[in-house]
Amino acid sequence: MSRTFTLDDLKRILLEGSGAPDGTGLEGDILDADFADIGYDSLALLETASRVEREYGIELDETVVGEANTPRALLDAISSHLPAQAA
């Protein structure tokens, strides 16, 4: 069974990992916003990647996570590691 990973999934995991109140830095059009500009540093992204790996059963290389500076880039990186959906 394959799964998809959406912006809402990413927002949920970012919030769970940061312990921030709902919506902190994640409201509006954030797809191309730099993570630093919306309040998430490299430690928060590593925690996010760890949570994604556990929840979705995938392995993300640290360089992939380190190079993903925006939610769109991280979504693309995560999606590329998910099993392809059957037609």
Rank of each mutant, 00 (worst) to 15 (best):
M1T: 14
S2P: 15
R3I: 00
R3Y: 03
T6K: 05
T6C: 00
D8P: 05
D9R: 03
L10W: 04
L10Y: 02
K11V: 01
I13W: 02
I13G: 03
I13L: 10
L14R: 01
G17M: 08
G17A: 12
G17Y: 04
S18L: 05
S18Q: 04
A20T: 02
G23P: 07
G23Q: 08
G23M: 04
G28I: 07
D32M: 09
D32A: 13
A33Y: 06
A33K: 14
A33G: 03
A33T: 12
A33L: 14
D37H: 07
D37P: 00
I38P: 14
G39C: 06
G39H: 12
Y40N: 07
S42L: 08
S42T: 11
S42N: 09
A44Q: 11
A44N: 14
L45E: 03
L45T: 02
E47S: 10
E47W: 07
T48H: 08
A49H: 01
S50N: 15
S50L: 11
S50H: 13
R51Y: 05
R51M: 11
G57Q: 04
I58A: 05
E59C: 10
E59F: 06
L60S: 04
L60I: 05
L60T: 08
E62P: 12
E62I: 09
E62D: 13
T63V: 10
V64N: 04
G66A: 13
E67F: 00
N69A: 14
N69M: 09
T70S: 06
T70R: 08
T70E: 02
R72E: 00
L74N: 06
L75W: 03
A77E: 03
I78H: 01
I78T: 01
S79T: 13
L82I: 00
A86W: 04
A86H: 07
A86N: 09
